[in-house]
Amino acid sequence: MKKAKPAPKAVRGAADPAVKKVVARHAGNKGALITVLQEVQAELGYLSGQTIEQISRAMDLPASQVYGVATFYTQFRLKPVGKHLMRVCHGTACHVSGAGKISQALEDELKVGDGETTEDGKFTLETVACLGCCSLAPVMMIDSETYGRLTPDSARKAAKDF
């Protein structure tokens, strides 16, 4: 494998203010790594390689450990996301109620695959295991707005109108 070129010293020293702030807030707390990653991601939208390195230095943990945790949990994103996050539920109840067709309709409408972001950067489409609104199946969420009892048509319409 090709070795990554180390970043210039000046850049390496300057951690993002968001990283500094979050790490300082949890200084001295045992086992705070996951919380730190969550809060940094909430500020910056995703965890870039550079961010992970900065967190590792600020918390005095090996970068491999920070990266290991960031890749273990599905919540963490290593790539930037679109302006709005569209999560289609594929839990059991949604699956038996036709979640596959909802995803298909959205993939056709937005011309992206699962986990991809639209060309204009407006939406990132994702499937998730369960949103816990099983009685409204099939369900999807656009950011914090929930859409229940979907049909392929109503899902397409929701994406168009948003």
Partner: peptide, 10 residues
């Protein structure tokens, strides 16, 4: 509560 299809604890 990770089981897809369960929302008791929530």
């Amino acid at each position: 509560e990770g089981d897809p299809g369960a929302f008791m604890d929530r």
